[in-house]
Write a protein that binds this DNA or RNA. Sequence first.
DNA 1: CTGAAAGCGCTTACAG
DNA 2: CTGAAAGCGCTTACAG
Lengths: 340, 340
Amino acid sequence: MTSRPTSRDVAKAAGVSQSTVSLVLGGKWSGRVSPATAAAVQDAAERLGYRPNRAARSLRLGSTRTVMLVVPTLTAPFFGAVYEGAARVAAQHGFGVVAYPWPEHAGPADSPFAAPHEAIDGILASSLAEDALSGFAGTPVVMLDSDPAAEAPTVVFGVEDGMRVIVDHLAGLGHRRFGHLASSIDQWTFHARGRALADAVAAVPGATLVREDAALDVADAKDAALRLLGGPGRPTALVCDDDVMSAGAYKAARARGLEIPRDLSVTGFDDVLLAAALEPELTTVRLPADELGAAGMDALLRLLEGERPGSLSLPGELVVRGSTGPAAVGAAPVHGPLHG
Amino acid sequence: MTSRPTSRDVAKAAGVSQSTVSLVLGGKWSGRVSPATAAAVQDAAERLGYRPNRAARSLRLGSTRTVMLVVPTLTAPFFGAVYEGAARVAAQHGFGVVAYPWPEHAGPADSPFAAPHEAIDGILASSLAEDALSGFAGTPVVMLDSDPAAEAPTVVFGVEDGMRVIVDHLAGLGHRRFGHLASSIDQWTFHARGRALADAVAAVPGATLVREDAALDVADAKDAALRLLGGPGRPTALVCDDDVMSAGAYKAARARGLEIPRDLSVTGFDDVLLAAALEPELTTVRLPADELGAAGMDALLRLLEGERPGSLSLPGELVVRGSTGPAAVGAAPVHGPLHG
DNA sequence: CTGAAAGCGCTTACAG
DNA sequence: CTGAAAGCGCTTACAG
C-alpha cells in the first residue's frame, strides 16, 4: 500500500464495516461492538499504521480541532513560553495551536486573521485589549493576562500580590522612598501593577512613591529612570514593571554613579532570562508563563465542550537575588519623610 | 442566513452553478467563464461574505495548506522571530504555520509530531540535527540554520563571514590573544562558528586561540569564562558563540576584577535583546532571524510547487558597541606571542 | 451487535 | 462558455 491507509482499509483488513472502525477508534463502542471485534479493529489499525484524516473529520464534524493563540509578539520569551504551555495541553486533547502575533499598533482592520478565521474552533488571546477581538463575535475565546472583568473567561497572574510582596520585601529592608518605573503600554496588567504598587506603598507608614512612564525597552526605560533618580530626595528603591525596564534602571544607576544594591535597590517583574544575566542579578517576581498558557488552553477546551469555566488567577513568586539590599541610612538625606 | 455561506449559496445568489463559483474564485476562469458571469460571482461572494471551507478544500485536494515549523524552543527570542518571518510569508500564500518546539534532548521516539504529522504539507526545521526528522521521509522539508551539505534545501547564516569580521575587528584593535567561549550544543551552526573562528585567528600573524565549552546559559558560561581568564597569558578578547554566553563572560570579568572593554574585550553573536541590556552594550553580529524564517518558508513553498530551490546563505552584520576596545599594551604580559 | 447510506463543502474531469 | 456528477475520508443516524 503506497498511500496512507483510510478507515476503509482498516475495515477491510479487520473484516468489518467502516462504521464499526469509526466507532471503535472513536472510543464509542462500549455496548455497541463486541470486544472481540473491537480488538480486531484496533489490531488492524495498528498494523496498517492508520491515522484518521483530520480534514475529513473536520469537514464532517464542522470543527477543526485547531485553536488560535493571539499574542502581541512571539519575540518576547514570555509569549514563547505561553505558546509552549498552551500547545502542550492542546496536544493532549488532539488539538493544534496556530500562533498569531498581533502587534500592539495593529487595529482590527489590518487583522492578520483574514485567512485563519475560518479554520479555528476557538481563540486564546494573551495580553490584548478586550475590544481587540471585536471582529470575532461568535468564536469562543479565553483571555489571558487581561482584565478579569471582561465577559470572556480569563486567566491572569496575581500581579497585585506580586507587587505587595515586592513592597513588603523592600519595606523590610528599610526603604521608604519608592520610584515606579512604569510601562506606558496600555494593557490591563500594567494598570493593575500600577494600582497595586500605589496601594501597597500607601500601606507603609511614611512611604512615598514617584512614577515615570516609559516604553518597554532598555533605552527608554533608562531615560525615565534617569529622571526618577535626578531630583533631590531620590528614591532608594526602583520598582520596575518588567525585567527589561530594570535593565534600563541599571544603566541609569551606573550613569548616576549609584551602585546596586548599596545605593539603590531595583526590582523587576516576570523573571525572564534577562534577570539572571544582569549584574547584580535581579530580584523579581517570577510569572509562570507556560502555566498561563496551559491553564488558558484548559479553560478554552472546557468552553468548547459547553462548560462555562470560571476565571483563574495564578500566583507569582518573589525571587530574591542581588539587586535589593538595605536602604542606606542617610543616603540622599534631603526632604521626603525621615525615618530611622 | 445564520450559518456560514457555502459555495452553493454563492452559486444560487449569482444564478450560476457551483463549478462556476469554484472556477471564478479559484482564479482559473480566464477563457472559461465570461467576464460578466465572473463579476457576478465575485460580487455575490463578497456580498455574502463567502470564505471557502478549508477542511473541505483540504479533503478534496489532499493538501492542508499548513506547514510545521520545528524549533528547539520558542522561549528563545531568536526562534520567535523565525516563526514570525515564516508565518508572514506563509500567510501571503494562504498557508498557516504550526510551531512545534522540539527540545534538544527529545529523540525521534518521543516526538510531539504524533498527531500533527497527518495534517501538514511540509516541514520547516530550524537548528536541528539532520537526522532528527528521520521519521518524516516523504514530507517535503527545508532546513534552517543547519548543515548546508544536507540533502534538503537549506537556509543558513553566513556565520563564517561573521566570525571573520569579528576577528578582523578585534585584530584591528590590537588583540592577539583570543579566547573562544564556545557552545557545547551539538548544532551545525556552533561547529561552523568554531571552525571559522579558528581559521580566522590562524590568519592573524602571531595570534593565539584558547577555547572553553559551556552550555548556553549564563551560569555555565561564566564558569567557562572564569577558566579562560584564569591562567597566565590570559586572552585580551573573548569571542562568544552567543549573546547569552557573553553575559556569562561579563560576570566572569567582574569576578576577576577586569573592566570591559579596558582590560578585556567581549563579543557576542545573534544580537538579541540581551546585547543592548548589558553594560557596556555588547559588540555582536546581528543575525536576521525573521529573514531566516521568511526565506525558509519561501523555499518550502517553492518546493511544494515542485520546484527545486537552491540553498541560501544570509549575511550577518557586525554591530560595534561598547564591549570592544583597544588591547591594553602590556596587559598580562606573560608568555604567548609578543607583539607591538 | 453490525452494516449500508448519506452528507459535510469543495474541485475537477467530463459532457454538452 | 456552463452545469451535473463524482468523490476526497470521515461520522452518525438509521435499519436490520
